[in-house]
Simulated scan of single mutants.
Amino acid sequence: MTWNLDQSDGQLRLHTGVEGRAARMGHRLTIAANSWHATVDWAGDEPAALTLTVDLNGVEVLSGEGGVTPLTPPEKALARTNALKVLNAKHFPQITYQADTIAKAADGYRLEGTLQIAGTEREHPVDVRVADEGDTWSMSVESTVHHRDFGLKPYSMLMGSMRVADAVTVTFTAHVAKDR
């Protein structure tokens, strides 16, 4: 059996922080990945492999917390442009995750896999929490990814006194019908 999931099944979000002497001036962003596809291959009653592909053209800045003033629509567009530049999306338009080892854990599964961002691959374990909600399975993930691990330089301004934090928190939630 194979599950095919996409953005209609759940949400994939990135949450950034701000660092530097002028960090109070910056916004902590929530960015949506609005175009993604995941394939989960099953071996009997257990998941055996997962492939996730995120199309960077589908990213959207949803909100910005903090900052001196509220984040305006033109600033959201600029933040999106800057994020795509940092990710070198012109040359690497997708982020991929491939997990070939999936082990049962206390509250779900532990995925051992490879994350590829901007042409750089790194091993990246992910813990997926799974809950039985009657007719559906609820899945959720929270994982931290570091710019430096992928050779990325976080966006900065004011001569580096305000910059996007190295650590980015990735969250994922989905609901899948049991009869899928």
Results as ranks from 00 to 15, higher is better:
residue 87 L to R: 07
residue 27 H to S: 00
residue 82 N to K: 12
residue 80 R to M: 10
residue 24 R to F: 06
residue 86 V to P: 03
residue 61 V to D: 03
residue 40 V to P: 00
residue 72 T to C: 01
residue 70 P to L: 05
residue 86 V to R: 00
residue 82 N to L: 11
residue 34 N to V: 10
residue 66 G to L: 03
residue 68 V to E: 02
residue 80 R to T: 10
residue 9 D to W: 08
residue 39 T to K: 09
residue 33 A to W: 14
residue 24 R to H: 05
residue 49 A to L: 10
residue 92 F to N: 11
residue 45 D to L: 04
residue 33 A to C: 11
residue 59 V to A: 10
residue 63 S to K: 01
residue 53 T to P: 04
residue 63 S to C: 02
residue 43 A to E: 13
residue 19 E to L: 04
residue 59 V to C: 06
residue 50 L to F: 12
residue 54 V to H: 04
residue 26 G to I: 02
residue 48 A to D: 15
residue 11 Q to L: 05
residue 9 D to T: 03
residue 6 D to T: 07
residue 89 A to L: 06
residue 24 R to L: 01
residue 35 S to V: 15
residue 50 L to N: 01
residue 47 P to M: 06
residue 46 E to Q: 08
residue 80 R to I: 12
residue 74 P to K: 01
residue 70 P to V: 13
residue 75 E to I: 09
residue 44 G to Q: 07
residue 91 H to F: 15
residue 40 V to R: 00
residue 79 A to M: 07
residue 78 L to R: 09
residue 56 L to A: 04
residue 72 T to V: 12
residue 90 K to A: 14
residue 23 A to I: 06
residue 23 A to Y: 00
residue 11 Q to S: 04
residue 15 H to G: 05
residue 60 E to Y: 11
residue 19 E to T: 09
residue 70 P to T: 13
residue 4 N to C: 04
residue 82 N to V: 13
residue 76 K to W: 14
residue 65 E to F: 12
residue 16 T to L: 02
residue 32 A to E: 08
residue 7 Q to E: 11
residue 80 R to K: 14
residue 46 E to I: 09
residue 75 E to L: 09
residue 27 H to F: 12
residue 49 A to V: 09
residue 32 A to K: 05
residue 54 V to T: 14
residue 6 D to Y: 12
residue 52 L to H: 07
residue 6 D to C: 04
residue 9 D to H: 09
residue 40 V to M: 05
residue 5 L to N: 02
residue 53 T to A: 07
residue 35 S to F: 08
residue 51 T to L: 12
residue 47 P to N: 01
residue 84 L to W: 15
residue 23 A to S: 02
residue 77 A to F: 15
residue 32 A to N: 05
residue 4 N to L: 07
residue 42 W to T: 14
residue 17 G to K: 03
residue 65 E to I: 08
residue 50 L to A: 03
residue 8 S to I: 08
residue 84 L to A: 04
residue 36 W to Y: 12
residue 61 V to L: 02
residue 50 L to Y: 14
residue 74 P to N: 09
residue 42 W to F: 15
residue 90 K to L: 15
residue 49 A to R: 08
residue 86 V to A: 05
residue 15 H to C: 03
residue 8 S to N: 10
residue 14 L to W: 15
residue 91 H to N: 14
residue 64 G to M: 02
residue 5 L to Q: 02
residue 30 T to P: 06
residue 54 V to I: 15
residue 3 W to F: 10
residue 4 N to A: 03
residue 60 E to T: 13
residue 80 R to L: 10
residue 71 L to E: 01
residue 87 L to N: 09
residue 92 F to Q: 12
residue 15 H to P: 06
residue 87 L to W: 12
residue 30 T to H: 02
residue 59 V to M: 11
residue 7 Q to I: 05
residue 41 D to N: 11
